[in-house]
Amino acid sequence: MSTLNLDPWTATLFLSGVLALSTLVMYLVYITLSRKTPQTSSEYSEPYIGGEPASVIKSVDVSVRNLFWGVVRGAGRRLYTFLRDQMHNGILNDWGVYMLSYIGLLTLIALIYFMR
């Protein structure tokens, strides 16, 4: 049995080609086998969420705001409070602190190099 030796580069390209091809084949199979007319049932026409009909809830989808709720408001709460409310607060003078400390760092490096 012969083996195919590929470097990671070509292998990635080769594999993604194979994946694209197989996806295409699966999609074609799906199209040919799927039902032409949609199946309807009276039970599914009215979605219920938590005992309430869908009309109570404004949107059927989750709002984009609430994606990654766990990360943004749970685990990363302190990080995001710092990043959003203290760092990127839109006030010009508060940006200046970061910018000035950066130029201070660069000047310090220049001085260290000069003193050496």
């Binding site: 910018m99 950066y102 130029i103 660069l106 220049a110 001085l111 190099y113 000069f114």
Partner: peptide, 26 residues
Amino acid sequence: YAATAIALALSLWAFTFKSAVFPNHF
């Protein structure tokens, strides 16, 4: 040497401002 060091520091600050790298990205 001193002049080169200061010049490089200042121009790097300007270039990173133009390309929006971390402390200059606001």
